[in-house]
Nucleic acid binder design. Structure first.
Length: 587
RNA sequence: GCCCUUGUAGCUCAAUGGACAGAGCAGCGGCCUUCUAAGCCGUUGGUUGUGAGUUCGAAUCUCACCAGGGGCGCCA
């Protein structure tokens, strides 16, 4: 937020270093830890070490301190700062706290819900996520891609990118045929009730069970698959109708989760174009057709002349000529860039087990000469497992259905809100329960490194205490409560006339960090940065809330603190919003 | 066999290569005539899997090893 000053001082330090016969490459400012004041810090060890490497016999620590002291003397006291010190090899510059505080709060007041957002970059990014299979249940295991992808899209958008949110449902395959077979034979004419995906999932499980109990029936399923391949109108019509049911079911789910998409691509739509691309690869000698004895493959390591196996061999078409996922992924990538030629990046939020697959697909596209291949990137994430390291799988029956989880979480939240705040209207209570319940589900999936497994257990998921989203929401509500009680417009914002309490200092510091953390989260594609900051903000606000009275404070102090409360509330709201979690006004 | 990934407090997880490795949960002890106790305060808890290396400085980078998870020609 104060880059201009930092840069100017960085220049001065560089000049100072030159007078010492040293070159300072990049000025990397750090935060000053455990200071209780704001400021920026620069270690002089790298420069001292530079001298050491040039053969001078020096004590690096002592020399760093010497240089820091020299730099401090050279700088004097720059405008906007109230103290400069050299400590243990670090140069610390402390902002003029009154001016700094006013500036942060003023900035938030002007930006409001845009606070923390980056300037538009004019760069288009597609984020593909969720990819649910139609004709199947939607369980907690599917949740991570949906939530992670949605939040990444929000982060990128807020950071200044033009984001296209894409979904890619698996709407064809053996699982769909099985479902259709079971429906035709045992459920003809039935229509889904209110929990659509649950019903679809039940029918799928039933189909699997029937086939397992009586394997002879698989001949019927195969026959049906062939009918589909011939595109028999009756089958196609049934597929289209039932697929729509699934999509409606997904839509209900996304609605509950506040997740939306701009564009849907379908598995089935990439099948034929994929086969065309494979034919092209064969003709150009990139793919090898080993049919009828083998499949169509791309020998990636061999083509690249690699000695160690890395990309291995990718099968791009089955020996019977039918398409695989790989076939379709080749086409899908191309379809995306045909539709959006300006895409700077095409991201795939897909679980980590498919890392090799995506490396193969992207490398093959690169070999085929598509210049956009290098703009494709797989964003891997680990799965959601159950305690005891049990992976959720529909077939094993080890799943927690999403409907059940959402219902349970919101019911639990409703109970708590009714208990804590009985005066709210039934409508308000329900709204709060949804915000809290959904937030409690989302937060643990975001406050974790993408590459780390999320272990789902009911107790932790429904625990609304501690480091969880209800804590942040609650802090937001408390801030709102103060503002509501004071009512009316905010007084004029001036520099604080009182000495700021440590809790005020820390809170302002955290608020000021938000814009940078947004950029970092976008650059690293890690929602965790913001999940952590949101929690830190809430904790810091709670601290302030307990130590610094607002309403009962004397007028001058109150005038300043009201603005601090408003800024903190805005920062927490923006942070929650970017995570896809609602910030209620009461709870 | 090859590749990827994880290992931090009893448990779940943090920590832009930087100054004393931090939270939550669980445990124990306190705090509601004071802006919502979904909160706050106090307290207990660590040779960052092991061993080397790079660096002025390593939980973080490199290598080896140990342990868990995942992936490796027609599953998705």
């Amino acid at each position: 937020m104060f880059e201009a000053e930092q840069e100017r001082i960085g220049e001065q330090i560089r000049t100072y270093c030159q007078t010492q016969g040293l070159t300072l490459e990049a000025v990397q400012w750090n935060w000053i830890p455990f200071s209780g004041h704001w400021g920026i810090s620069l270690p002089f060890f790298p420069i001292a070490a530079q001298e050491s490497r040039q053969g001078q016999k020096i004590n690096v620590g002592a020399r760093a301190q010497e240089l820091a002291e020299g730099a401090a003397a050279h700088l004097g006291l720059p405008a906007g700062f109230e103290r400069v010190e050299a400590v243990r090899g670090y140069l610390n510059l402390y902002f003029d706290s009154g001016a700094y505080a006013r500036r942060v709060l003023e900035h938030v007041r002007q930006e409001q819900e845009r606070f923390g957002s980056g300037a538009a970059r004019g760069e288009q990014v597609m984020v593909e996520f969720s990819q649910p299979n139609t004709h199947k249940a939607f369980h907690v295991g599917h949740l991570r891609s949906a939530i992670l992808g949605d939040t990444l899209a929000r982060i990128l958008e807020f950071a200044g990118y033009a984001v296209i949110r894409a979904n890619y449902p698996g709407d064809m395959g053996l699982h769909v045929i099985k479902w259709l077979w079971n429906y035709q034979k045992f459920h003809k004419g039935e229509k889904p009730q209110k929990d659509i995906t649950q019903w679809m999932g039940q029918l799928y499980a039933e189909a699997s069970r029937r086939l397992e109990e009586n394997p002879d029936l698989e001949a019927e399923v195969r026959a049906l698959y062939q009918a589909w391949d011939r595109r028999e109108p009756e089958i196609v019509a049934l597929w289209e109708e039932t697929r729509q049911w699934s999509l409606e079911g997904f839509h209900q789910m996304y609605d509950l989760l506040d997740i939306r998409f701009d564009r849907y691509y379908f598995n089935s739509q990439a099948e034929q174009p994929g086969k065309v691309m494979v034919q092209d690869l064969i003709e150009r000698g990139i793919a090898q057709d080993e049919r009828p004895d083998g499949a169509v493959i791309v020998k990636l390591d061999e083509l690249l002349g690699l000695k160690n196996e890395k990309y291995r061999v990718m099968v791009v078409l089955r020996s019977d000529g039918t398409a695989l996922y790989a076939t379709e992924d080749l086409a899908l990538a191309k379809i995306k860039f045909e539709e959006y030629p300006q895409l700077a990046r095409s991201l795939y939020v897909v679980d980590v087990r498919q890392s090799l697959h995506f490396q193969q697909v992207f490398k093959t596209l690169e070999l085929a000469g598509y210049d956009w291949a290098e703009r494709c990137q797989h964003i891997p994430y680990e799965l959601v497992s159950l305690p005891g390291n049990v992976v959720m799988a529909s077939r094993e029956g080890t799943v927690v259905l999403l409907e059940d989880l959402i219902r349970e979480a919101t019911e639990r939240a409703l109970q708590v809100v009714s208990d804590k705040n009985p005066d709210l209207s039934a409508e308000q209570k329900l709204e709060v329960a949804k915000a809290v319940g959904i937030g409690a589900i989302k937060y643990p999936m975001l406050a974790r490194e993408n590459a780390k497994t999320v272990t789902f257990d009911w107790q932790a998921a429904l625990d609304f205490n501690g480091q969880a989203s209800p804590y942040i929401q609650y802090a937001h509500v408390r801030a709102n409560s103060i503002l509501r009680k004071l009512g009316g417009d905010l007084p004029e914002l001036t520099e604080p006339q009182h000495e700021l309490a440590p809790a005020e200092v820390e809170l302002i510091e955290l608020i000021s960090r938000f814009p940078k953390e947004v950029q970092r989260a976008a650059a690293e594609l890690r929602p965790l940065c913001l999940a952590s900051l949101g929690y830190d903000l809430a904790r810091s606000f709670s601290d302030f809330y307990n130590q610094c009275p607002v309403i009962s404070a004397e007028p001058a102090v109150r005038a300043f603190r009201v603005h601090l409360v408003a800024a903190a509330k805005q920062a927490m709201a923006n942070c929650l919003n970017i995570l896809g979690i609602r910030a209620p006004e009461v709870m």
